[in-house]
């Protein structure tokens, strides 16, 4: 799954929306819109977190293979 949304930007936006929502001047209508936008964004962030795939790989001569650490010291 390809995410076009950058995680940093998303987190920054989450913060910005929180500040905007907490400000007194935002109308109720605008607040509801911001709230929905924020919740959508947080959902996306969680999706990015969930959708990462655990892989330990090693690249040798441009070829990727699974890698496991041998426990010999």
């Amino acid at each position: 799954m390809k995410e076009d949304i950058n995680f940093e930007d998303a987190m920054e936006k989450l913060e910005k929306i929180a500040e905007e929502l907490e400000s007194e001047d935002l109308s109720l209508d605008a607040s509801v819109k911001k709230f929905e936008e924020g919740m959508e964004l947080s959902k996306k962030c969680n999706e990015i977190l969930q959708n990462a795939e655990k892989k330990i790989t090693v690249l040798i001569n441009g070829e990727e293979q699974n890698f496991s650490v041998n426990n010999e010291e």
Partner: peptide, 11 residues
């Protein structure tokens, strides 16, 4: 820290 992390090693 992140069970879903991808670690790619170039030895």
């Amino acid at each position: 820290r992140n069970p879903n992390v991808h670690i790619r090693l170039i030895p």
